[in-house]
Amino acid sequence: MRIEWERQGDVVVAVLSGRIDGGNAGALHRRLEEAVSPRDHDLVLNFDRVSFISSAGLRVNLLMAKQFDGAGRKFAVCSLSGTVRAIFKSTGFDRVIAIHESQADAFEALGNG
């Protein structure tokens, strides 16, 4: 999976590409943990180029949300496609994870607009 990084103030955005499934979710989790610490940053995952996410990928979102919430930081996702949004909705993740329409919206909501 390709990850491109963007930063604005304290907010780090990971722009993800491709599929997040049982085969690569563990690696994604490790790479996010290595690159971003909730001591220093808020984290946004940009799903604009993600076609598909399975429950293994949702687990990564949940782990990051717990980690960042626990540290008093913010975790959010943005730019979900229709199918990814449907998966978030079906599992109730749309109620426990902040979802923003666009990366600009996410920056604004996290106080760095």
């Binding site: 949702l58 949300a65 919430d69």
Partner: peptide, 21 residues
Amino acid sequence: LSLAAEDRPIGGLGIHLTKSF
């Protein structure tokens, strides 16, 4: 599915998704 993020167990969603779709 009503649990808040911090209370959710890490797992058990795959079969639910399959049944949903």
